[in-house]
Each structure stands twice: as C-alpha cells, then as structure tokens.
C-alpha cells in the first residue's frame, strides 16, 4: 500500500513549509540595493577624481570585491547572506565570496589542490559560460557586421 513516487512527491511538497517569500524578497531588495548604492558612491567618487567611466567601473568592482573578501575572511559575509539571500548573491560581492570562501575553506588541503583548485569550484562555471557567451556574441558581430 505504499504510495507511488509521484504520489509521494505530492505528499512531501505538501509537508514542506513554505519559505517566507515576501520577507526574503524584501531583504534581498534592501541589501542588494544597498550594495549597489555603495558601489554608486565609489563610482561617483572616482568620477569626481577625474577617472574615466571604464576606469571608475573597474575601481568600483575592485573595491567591492575587496570588501567582500574581507567580510568573508572575518566569517561575516555568510551571516549577512543568511538574511539577504540573493541580495548578497547577485552583486559582484557574491561572485567574490564564491571565490574567496572555497579558497579559505580548503586551505587545509594545501595551496595547490586546496586553495588553487577549489577557488573556482563555484565561480568557474560563471566565468566559463560568461566568456563563452561573449565569444559567441563576438563571433556573431565579427561575421555578420
């Protein structure tokens, strides 16, 4: 009399508590927006210093990545992310955290196969498919324009 996998899947979906969607979305909006606002602060400052748009953008990224790496090293980024969810995942700080956290975590496995290899375990696919998409785009414009 045991249920079929399909019936059981329904049972288990019913038994699972719902995540608090609106609270989570609100937190993601707030924290994500705030990180972007900090980014805007740095960007505006670089423009005030007279840097070009491109240079300013690079400095902004570097500064945010530095802050993310620092908070990750101090074991604070994950505490923030627990509440912020996508708010700390989607900004460039989340990308930095995805590289810094495995590097730190797998330190015990050595500098080569630990830090070196594991650093890309989460961010690797992001870089790979981002670059691949850009190459595809480049081919299209090079061949058809």
């Amino acid at each position: 009399m045991s249920p079929t996998p399909r019936e059981y899947n329904k049972m288990s979906e019913k038994a699972a508590p719902n995540s608090k969607l609106w609270k989570n979305v609100g937190m993601a909006f707030l924290v994500g927006g705030l990180i972007c606002t900090i980014g805007q602060g740095i960007l505006s400052w670089t423009q005030w210093l007279g840097l070009s748009q491109e240079e300013g953008g690079a400095v902004t990224s570097i500064a945010l990545i530095f802050l993310s790496a620092l908070l990750t090293g101090l074991n604070r980024y994950d505490d923030l992310a627990k509440h912020a969810g996508a708010g700390t995942l989607v900004p460039i700080t989340g990308f930095a955290n995805s590289m810094v956290s495995p590097a730190l975590e797998f330190k015990r496995e050595g500098l080569i196969l630990g830090v070196g290899a594991k650093m890309f375990s989460i961010a690797g696919p992001v870089i790979l498919y981002g670059i691949s998409a850009s190459v595809l785009y480049g081919l299209i414009i090079a061949l058809f324009h």
Partner: peptide, 17 residues
C-alpha cells in the same frame, strides 16, 4: 557542510526543509 554542500563562509541561504 564542506563535503556535501558549500564552504562554511559561502553566503548561501538554507531552504526551510
């Protein structure tokens, strides 16, 4: 965590289940 899921410092959110 480090074997089955993510590094401890990784900023992920755990689902309610």
């Amino acid at each position: 965590e480090r074997q089955f899921r993510f590094p401890l410092e990784y900023g992920g959110q755990r689902p309610p289940t």
